[in-house]
């Protein structure tokens, strides 16, 4: 599948809208991920979606549905990602392993399994498996209308859940102790957040690629956090920045065909974050600036 085929299947505006939606969702979910200090877990979840995707591909081929069925790949990816994140707390309880060890083990197992499955698929010379390679680093050009539809549905579901559970998620994100005291079901909300995280990661698989999607989840939210405002403002900012970086990334990768979309998006998001940090550091050095959520986190001993 070459670039022009991809673009004509999903005309550019639709593609851009879909990616913007992904960027926005990633930014929103990312705000909570950062607040709950789960950035590395998000990275592991993303990498861990690979084996599920490969198995779904094989299942699709076996069932005659065709390997590239979007909803199947999404389902497979989500399952393995969820499994991997489920493993982490259990592993970290083993004496001497800890959270860092648990992340490394989970990542090694699932991504390793993904590597093995991918190599098996790739050696089978089937036309559809070329698409799987794009999942590593993302390719807007290779995204079909069906993919975008799936992405949009997922994104809207995530946004709906966030809207419904907004105050509860906000409570556990910013002060878990207080939330417990209030009687909120912290563990269950954490699971919901995890599910939202996996959904965002899997939604972005096609365009950002599983290796780099975590940047779209973390960087726009981190940038938003640097700027003063309430939680609602930060979320809105994160969504806008995410959408903006996603769109820029797509445009860049359509312009420079060999540049993978995931790379382009990450570079935009990362550069914007560093620039904002630099500007604010400069301002802070020269004089006082209004307190931001980042400052509050810093005082709380981030």
């Amino acid at each position: 599948m070459d670039a022009t085929e991809g673009i004509s299947r999903a005309n550019t505006v639709v593609a851009l809208t879909g990616c913007a939606l992904f960027g926005a969702v990633a930014g929103v979910v990312g705000t909570f991920v950062l607040a709950r200090r789960r950035a590395l877990l998000a990275d592991v979840a993303a990498h861990a979606s690979l084996p599920g995707v490969c198995l779904a591909f094989l299942a699709g081929e076996a069932l005659g549905l065709g390997g590239r069925t979007p909803w199947l790949l999404l389902a497979g990816g989500s399952l393995s990602a969820l499994l991997a994140t489920w493993c982490v707390p259990h592993l970290s309880r083993l004496r001497g392993v800890g959270p860092d060890g648990a992340l490394a083990v989970s990542l090694s197992f699932f991504f390793g399994l993904g590597a093995v499955l991918l190599s098996s698929i790739q050696s089978h010379e089937s036309g559809a498996q070329g698409g799987l390679n794009h999942l590593l680093f993302g390719s807007a050009a290779a995204t079909t209308r069906a993919d975008l539809l799936m992405l949009a549905v997922l994104a809207l579901v995530v946004l709906a859940v966030v809207a419904m559970l907004f105050k509860e998620l906000a409570a556990i994100a910013f002060d878990e102790m207080h939330a417990r005291v209030l009687g909120l079901p912290v563990r269950r909300l954490d699971l919901v957040l995890l599910a939202l995280l996996v959904a965002s990661v899997v939604a972005g698989m096609q365009v950002a690629g599983i290796v780099l999607v975590v940047a779209m989840i973390v960087a726009p939210a981190a940038t938003a956090r640097l700027l003063p405002g309430s939680l609602t403002t930060v979320i809105a900012l994160a969504a806008s920045i995410g959408a903006g970086c996603a769109v820029c990334g797509v445009l860049l990768s359509l312009r420079y065909e060999s540049l993978p979309t995931g790379s382009a998006m990450t570079l935009c998001a990362g550069a914007l974050f560093m620039l904002t940090t630099l500007v604010l550091a400069g301002r802070r050095w020269r004089g006082a600036t209004p307190s931001t959520p980042a400052d509050a986190a810093g005082r709380a001993g981030a």
């Binding site: 200090r37 590395l40 780099l212 940047a215 960087a219 981190a222 790379s263 990362g270 560093m274």
Partner: peptide, 25 residues
């Protein structure tokens, strides 16, 4: 940026990696 260690690492290292991949491709 008063960011926790995991997130700071996450941003820097994915950005660098993205740059590396971009250069490669």
């Amino acid at each position: 940026a008063r960011l926790e260690a995991g997130a700071a690492l996450g941003i820097v290292f994915t950005t660098f990696f993205a740059l590396g991949v971009a250069l490669l491709e």
